[in-house]
């Protein structure tokens, strides 16, 4: 059945294509484990604050990729190269904005001796 739809649409767009109940369940359970891990890391207080921040950041990044693969169905199909390129560019812009903003504001605060 998914084949019929798939061929009607022609290409493996993200959001369709190789989806199945199984792949959604795998994505769901992986996300559940990663989310529970992040909440546990914060609520149990077993690690130092800086370690906890590093751990939950890594868990979040992994979970974003789990969602992108299992829910947005991003794959290595040559038909969707432009989708991946747009995604990579968006990530690059976000990283420049976030870290650039933090760097500039930190530098400003240092020069104005407000911290």
């Amino acid at each position: 059945m998914s084949n019929a739809h798939h061929s009607a649409m022609g290409h493996d767009e993200p959001g369709e294509g190789h989806a199945s109940y199984g792949s959604y369940m795998i994505g769901f359970f992986l996300s559940l484990i990663l989310t529970a891990g992040a909440f546990a890391a914060v609520m149990v207080h077993a690690m130092s604050p800086s370690t906890t921040i590093a751990v939950i950041s890594v868990l979040a990044i992994v979970q974003v990729f789990v969602h992108v693969v299992y829910f947005l169905h991003m794959n290595t199909d040559p038909e969707t190269t432009w989708n991946r390129l747009a995604f990579a560019f968006a990530i690059l812009v976000v990283l420049i904005v976030v870290f650039g903003f933090l760097f500039v504001m930190h530098d400003t605060a240092m020069h104005m001796m407000s911290r």
Partner: peptide, 24 residues
């Protein structure tokens, strides 16, 4: 669908700026 994907990427940048503001 590809056009909508591009919209989502711009939305991603919008949220990125809001996260940057929050971080500061």
């Amino acid at each position: 669908v590809f056009g909508f994907w591009i919209y989502l990427m711009t939305d991603c940048v919008l949220f990125g700026t809001l996260f940057a503001v929050f971080a500061v």
